[in-house]
Structures are given as structure tokens and as C-alpha cells.
Simulated scan of single mutants.
Amino acid sequence: MLGLRKVMLLALFIGTPAMAQDIAEGERLFHYRCAVCHGLEADGAGLMAPVLLLQPIDLTQLQRANGDEFPLKRVVWRIDGRDPLVSHGSPMPVYGDFFEGRGISLKTNSGQAIMTSQPIADLVAWLRSIQH
């Protein structure tokens, strides 16, 4: 099985057409992998939050906290481990391996391409959909 980084590198060399993002699948992945820390409502009030050194942020406020622009690159890189976060004495669990799948290219508002996997793209689509 190819790791996320290998899939992304392979996609860079062969090119990856844009694929549709599945918001419902992103929500399912969030509730399965992320809600225990980030909360069912993605508000940072998950069951594990009290034991974490750094409290999870309110993920519904990502866009507002970033000058009304969704921080796509930072979110993708935080999930797949390219931008580690120390939360409970060690990096935030790197879920890149859990979100392996077909490589996909997303574009930031500035047009920068970001390679990731389809599951992470779905998760990011859902996070975008819940911004206040």
C-alpha cells in the first residue's frame, strides 16, 4: 500500500485531474477520526479536550480567524502531518496514513496547487462548509 507522501509525489509526476469533493464523506470522516478531540460540532469541545496540553480550536472559525479566507494549505498540512502541532506532549496525531487515497490537487485562493488525498479533500470540503 502506498503512503500518502508517495501518492502525492506520484500524482505530481503523472498529473491528477480535479475530482469532486464529497462533503458527506468528509463529515463522516470527521466524526470517525476527529470529533473525539475537536467535538461533534467541531467547536473544540471534544471528550479528550480536557486532557490535552493545547486545547483544540473551534474549527468552525478557521475562516474568520484567517482574515475571512479559509486557510486551505495550513489545514491540509496539519491533517497530513506536514505542519505538525504539539498538543499533548507529542505531535497532533498524524492522520495522513488513515486518509490515504487517490491523489488530488486542491487550489488555494491564490491559485497555489496543494497535493493531498481524496479523503483529506473530502474532510476539508466539510470543514469549509461549516465555517461561520
Rank of each mutant, 00 (worst) to 15 (best):
M1E: 10
M1S: 09
L2E: 10
G3W: 01
G3P: 04
L4R: 06
L4K: 02
L4A: 10
M8I: 15
L9Y: 11
L10C: 07
L12I: 07
L12Q: 09
F13S: 12
I14E: 11
T16M: 14
A18G: 00
M19L: 15
A20F: 13
Q21I: 06
I23E: 14
I23N: 04
E25N: 15
E25S: 14
E25M: 15
E27N: 00
L29G: 11
C34V: 02
A35Q: 04
G39N: 02
L40R: 09
E41I: 08
A42W: 03
D43A: 06
G44A: 03
L47P: 01
L47K: 05
A49K: 01
V51W: 13
I57F: 02
I57P: 10
T60G: 09
N66D: 10
N66L: 06
G67C: 04
G67F: 10
G67M: 08
D68A: 12
E69R: 06
F70I: 09
R74S: 11
R74A: 15
W77E: 04
I79Y: 04
D80Q: 09
D80I: 10
D80S: 00
G81V: 07
G81H: 01
D83S: 15
P84V: 05
S87T: 13
H88Q: 14
S90E: 12
P91I: 02
P91A: 05
M92N: 03
M92W: 02
P93M: 04
V94N: 15
Y95V: 08
G96N: 01
G96D: 00
F98Y: 12
F99V: 05
E100P: 05
E100L: 14
G103D: 13
G103W: 13
S105V: 14
N109V: 06
G111C: 08
G111M: 08
A113H: 10
M115A: 07
M115N: 06
P119W: 09
A125D: 06
A125L: 13
L127Q: 04
L127G: 00
I130L: 11
Q131M: 09
Q131D: 05
